[in-house]
């Protein structure tokens, strides 16, 4: 069965199911003391590639307007002047548009890489960059498995740029600008666990239209950005080989060994020093 976007909405309207949620879902937090992080669900089935998100993002962050449009065969990349892009892919299901930006990992590699806490995972969920702390070492860029943080190479006062999920707006009780302006309702903002429930619901109610997979559910240990698509994710530019456990886990073993070395080494070295104190007399004899 071939279905286009218009038909899909019709079906939804008929079944009266899920799409009446609007642009955000708020559930009562299970535990008010432990706020659950927010996330964004992107549904490539609904995205028409209109770039409204790109224009909105550029506008509210004082960045230049996009000069190019999604084009099949061209992978547009985020860079220091644009924090989100929409790319078009030719797939078995026709053209599929995908919006990319920072994934806002649950356990971000960039945050654990940062030696000054400039990269910071807020309790609300967004991963933000703090100008007054950053020393510009770019280790966050080395570590990020999604290649998200960008650096202003041509500035004497360079910044690291990336999507911050409109953290300012979230603090004011608003939702991210791209979610608010998306005319296709392809973006949904809410508590991460609610978004996963919603994504599963869509997959189960419309199994013909979605692959049964949520990208970001446990990629890199789980991300704040969650993706639904009508084709396998490797067909639309996603790295599906990415490890399912968190990236900071990779250097934890090393970091845990540090205190042990700090205690054991000096003791050991001092012991050897004492034990070999008189060796030089023997060595001197041998050298003669």
């Amino acid at each position: 069965m071939k279905i286009d976007r218009r038909n899909f909405f019709r079906v939804v309207g008929v079944t009266g199911a899920t799409m009446t949620l609007g642009k955000e879902i708020f559930a009562e937090p299970k535990n008010a003391n432990e706020p659950e992080p927010y996330g964004i669900l992107f549904d490539s089935f609904l995205c028409g590639g209109c770039q409204t998100c790109e224009y909105t993002c550029a506008e509210i962050h004082n960045l230049p307007e996009p000069v190019d449009a999604p084009e099949i065969g061209v992978t547009r990349k985020i860079n220091e002047t644009r924090r989100t892009v929409v790319n078009a892919y030719e797939t078995s299901e026709g053209e599929v548009d995908v919006k990319r930006q920072c994934m806002h990992c649950n356990e971000p590699a960039c945050v654990s890489a940062c030696l000054t806490q400039a990269m910071f995972k807020t309790k609300e969920g967004p991963v933000i960059w703090r100008e007054d702390k950053c020393m510009g070492c770019r280790y966050c860029m080395i570590s990020c498995p999604f290649d998200i943080p960008k650096f202003e190479y041509n500035s004497p006062n360079p910044k690291i740029t990336k999507c911050d999920m409109c953290y300012d707006r979230i603090q004011e009780g608003k939702i991210p600008a791209c979610v608010e302006t998306c005319p296709a309702e392809a973006l949904l903002f809410g508590k991460r666990s609610d978004l996963i429930k919603e994504a599963n619901k869509r997959v189960h109610e419309f199994p013909d239209w979605y692959v049964d997979d949520i990208y970001g559910d446990n990629e890199a240990g789980g991300t704040g950005l969650l993706y639904l698509a009508q084709v396998p994710f490797e067909d639309i530019g996603f790295n599906t080989g990415i490890q399912k456990s968190s990236f900071p886990e990779l250097s934890k073993g090393f970091l845990y060994s540090v205190p042990f070395v700090f205690v054991l080494w000096p003791t050991l070295l001092l012991g050897i020093h004492e034990a070999t104190k008189n060796n030089h007399i023997k060595n001197a004899e041998e050298d003669e």
Partner: peptide, 14 residues
């Protein structure tokens, strides 16, 4: 920042 102040990124290998 990583040496003095309150910006210790102690989880960082760097």
């Amino acid at each position: 920042n990583p040496i003095i102040g309150n910006s210790f990124g102690t989880s960082s290998v760097l």
